[in-house]
Amino acid sequence: TKEGQWDCSACLVQNEGSSTKCAACQNPRKQ
């Protein structure tokens, strides 16, 4: 995982660090 990116806890899609919700399932980003 690149720095600043995060993996969705629900569907495991990798998202940009600037995103607050998963691009695939709209699950909110977990801190």
Rank of each mutant, 00 (worst) to 15 (best):
D7E: 14
K30M: 15
V13I: 09
G17Q: 10
C8Y: 00
N15I: 03
C8S: 02
E3Q: 14
S18V: 07
A23S: 09
Q14T: 14
A23L: 04
V13L: 08
Q31F: 05
A24K: 10
Q14I: 12
G4Q: 14
N15R: 06
C25A: 03
C25G: 04
A10M: 00
D7N: 15
A24E: 12
N15E: 07
Q26E: 15
Q5A: 01
S18W: 01
K30E: 08
V13H: 14
E3K: 07
A24V: 04
P28Q: 14
K30S: 08
T20I: 09
G17T: 13
K30T: 13
T1W: 00
R29M: 15
Q31A: 13
D7G: 06
N15Q: 11
V13G: 13
Q5K: 13
A23D: 14
K21Q: 07
N27P: 07
T1A: 09
E3D: 11
W6V: 08
S9C: 08
S9K: 14
N15F: 00
N27A: 12
P28E: 15
N15L: 03
G4Y: 14
T1D: 05
E16V: 04
Q26V: 03
S18D: 09
P28W: 10
C22A: 01
D7S: 08
V13E: 09
K30C: 02
C25R: 02
C25I: 02
T1K: 14
A24H: 10
K30W: 02
A23C: 04
Q14H: 08
E16T: 10
G4C: 12
Q31T: 12
Q26K: 15
V13D: 13
G17K: 12
P28Y: 11
R29I: 11
V13M: 04
E16M: 10
K30A: 07
Q31N: 12
C11R: 02
N27Y: 07
E3P: 00
Q26W: 03
C25M: 04
E16S: 09
L12R: 14
E3C: 00
G4A: 12
R29Q: 15
S19T: 11
Q14R: 08
A23M: 08
K2L: 04
Q5I: 05
P28D: 15
K30D: 11
W6P: 00
G17I: 11
N27Q: 15
S9Y: 08
C8W: 00
K21H: 08
W6Y: 13
Q26F: 08
L12S: 00
C22D: 03
W6E: 14
Q26C: 11
C25S: 01
E3Y: 05
A10R: 01
G17V: 13
V13R: 10
Q5G: 05
T20P: 08
A10C: 03
K30I: 13
A23P: 05
N27D: 15
C22N: 02
K2Y: 03
T20M: 06
K30R: 07
E16C: 03
W6H: 11
N15K: 09
W6S: 13
Q5R: 09
T20F: 06
A23T: 10
S19L: 12
T1E: 09
T20Y: 03
C25T: 03
S19H: 09
E3G: 01
Q26T: 09
S18G: 14
C22W: 00
E16N: 11
G4K: 11
A10I: 05
Q31G: 15
Q5F: 02
Q26G: 11
E16R: 01
K2C: 10
S9P: 12
K2E: 05
S9D: 12
E16H: 06
A24F: 05
C25P: 04
G4P: 07
D7T: 05
G17R: 09
P28A: 11
A10T: 03
N15D: 08
W6A: 12
D7W: 01
N27T: 15
A24M: 02
S18N: 13
E3A: 00
Q26P: 02
N15A: 04
C25W: 01
S18T: 14
G17H: 13
K30L: 05
Q26L: 10
Q14L: 10
A24L: 05
A23I: 04
C8F: 00
R29A: 15
D7C: 10
C22H: 05
Q31H: 13
W6R: 12
C11M: 02
C8N: 03
P28S: 09
W6T: 15
E16G: 07
G4T: 15
S19F: 07
W6F: 04
Q14A: 13
R29P: 09
A23W: 01
R29V: 14
S19V: 09
K2H: 01
K21S: 06
S9L: 12
S9T: 12
P28I: 09
G17E: 14
E16K: 04
C22Y: 00
Q31Y: 04
E16I: 10
S18I: 06
T20N: 05
C8G: 02
A24C: 05
N15Y: 01
T1I: 12
N15T: 05
G4E: 15
K21Y: 03
Q31E: 08
Q5D: 03
N27K: 13
C11P: 04
K30G: 00
A23V: 09
C25E: 07
V13P: 03
C22S: 02
K21F: 05
S19R: 08
A23Q: 09
A24P: 05
T1P: 00
N15G: 12
E3V: 01
E3L: 02
Q14N: 11
S18P: 04
V13S: 08
A24N: 15
V13Y: 02
S9I: 10
E3F: 06
C8D: 01
A23N: 05
N27I: 09
K21R: 07
C11A: 01
T20C: 01
N27M: 05
W6L: 07
E3R: 02
W6M: 09
C22K: 01
Q5C: 13
T1V: 09
K2V: 02
E16L: 05
D7I: 06
A10L: 04
D7Q: 10
D7L: 03
C8E: 08
R29K: 13
K21I: 08
Q14S: 12
L12C: 07
S19N: 11
P28N: 09
K30P: 09
G17N: 12
P28M: 07
D7A: 11
C8R: 01
A24Q: 09
R29S: 11
K21L: 06
Q14Y: 10
T20V: 06
E3H: 02
G17P: 13
V13F: 04
S19Y: 14
T20A: 11
C8I: 00
R29L: 07
